[in-house]
């Protein structure tokens, strides 16, 4: 077929573009990610029994704030990476600032603690399972977010895959806060960040293959 004919084929009978399609796609993906991860927490790990009392303490909400901030930052970056020619620019700060903040706070906590208590503050009681639990919880969100990004038009596939993985990981971590008994900032700074890094790495590896269009 000649190119001219293709042009008229594409142009005839065009309908107005739905401007909200990006927002709707990510809305559904986030909903699936949150519901999926929460369901997995309830089914496999169980909500921590003292959630009623602990959710009244500021430290619990400080803990939830980390993945919430990272999810927001990753969402902003992912949406930009999913559209051709859009600059990410300042949106990177949405990922960098929460990570820097929790590392700084974790470092201060460790330095101020007596030397004998430091290992317990960093390793907690669940460091062995924590990153893998988060990675497991991120599976439904990972699939949903990749499907959303696939329907758009990412041009930097590896970066877009990584940002999508981080979005899934951060959403999963919010849900994991319902279960996780660790209340040390230093623990979150290391193991939560590692847990979110796992789906990020998988996303970076899978991006060039799964997001190609």
């Amino acid at each position: 077929m000649e190119t001219d004919l293709l042009v008229s084929l594409l142009a005839s009978g065009v309908t107005p573009v739905d401007r909200h399609v990006v927002a709707r796609r990510f809305g559904w993906a986030l909903l699936a990610a949150a519901l999926g991860a929460t369901l997995l927490v309830v089914l496999f790990y169980g909500v921590r029994p003292d959630i009623g009392t602990v959710s009244a303490t500021p430290i619990f909400w400080a803990k939830v704030a980390l993945p919430v901030a990272l999810a927001a930052g990753a969402l902003a970056v992912t949406i930009r990476l999913a559209r051709p020619g859009a600059r990410v620019g300042l949106a990177w700060a949405g990922i960098a600032v929460p990570v820097a903040a929790v590392w700084l706070a974790g470092l201060i906590v460790v330095l101020m603690a007596p030397a004998s208590a430091r290992v317990a503050l960093v390793m907690g009681a669940t460091w062995r399972s924590c990153p893998f639990n988060i990675a497991f919880l991120s599976i439904p969100g990972f699939v949903a977010a990749f499907a959303a990004v696939r329907g758009l038009a990412p041009t930097h596939l590896r970066l877009a895959g990584a940002a999508t993985g981080l979005l899934a990981g951060a959403t999963a971590t919010i849900a994991y806060c319902l279960h996780c008994p660790e209340m040390s900032v230093a623990f979150w700074a290391l193991w939560y960040v590692l847990g979110m890094l796992l789906p990020t790495v998988v996303g970076a590896l899978a991006g060039p293959k799964w997001l190609r269009w």
Binding site: V17, D18, R19, V21, V22, A82, R83, P84, G85, A86, L152, A153, T155, W213
Partner: peptide, 21 residues
Amino acid sequence: GRHTYRPDEPLTAWVHAIARY
């Protein structure tokens, strides 16, 4: 991919990103 274009952004940057990709 026309649903990924936003009118407040430069059209040339969008088209070029697709062409380069």
